[in-house]
Simulated scan of single mutants.
Amino acid sequence: MYGYQGYYPYQVNFGYGYQIPNEQFQLIQRQQPLDLSTEGATNSQNLGNGFHRYAWEERTIPGSTYLGVRIFAGSKKVITAGYGVAKYAPIYAMESFPRTANQWYMTIYNPTDADRQLGIYLIAKD
Rank of each mutant, 00 (worst) to 15 (best):
E39Q: 12
I108A: 10
T65K: 09
R99S: 11
G84E: 13
A73G: 01
Q117D: 11
A55N: 10
E23S: 15
G17T: 06
P62F: 03
S44Q: 14
T107W: 03
V78Q: 07
P9S: 04
Y7I: 15
G63L: 09
P62Y: 02
Q5G: 08
E39N: 12
K125L: 10
L122Y: 07
Y16R: 12
S96W: 00
I28H: 00
G6S: 08
A41K: 10
R99L: 15
G82L: 09
Y18M: 03
N22W: 04
Q117V: 12
A86L: 08
A55F: 09
P111V: 10
F25R: 12
F97L: 09
I71W: 03
L67Q: 15
R59Y: 03
N49D: 15
Q26G: 12
Y54M: 03
T80Q: 11
A93C: 06
N13C: 14
E95S: 11
P90A: 14
R99C: 00
V69R: 02
P98Q: 04
W56F: 04
Q32K: 12
E39H: 07
G63S: 06
E57F: 04
D113A: 11
Y2M: 09
F51A: 06
G40Q: 14
Q11G: 10
K76Q: 14
A86F: 09
Y92M: 13
Y8C: 12
I120N: 03
M94Q: 14
P111I: 13
S44A: 08
V12H: 14
N46P: 05
N13W: 01
H52A: 08
Y16V: 11
I91G: 00
S64K: 11
V12P: 07
Q31A: 15
E58F: 14
V85S: 13
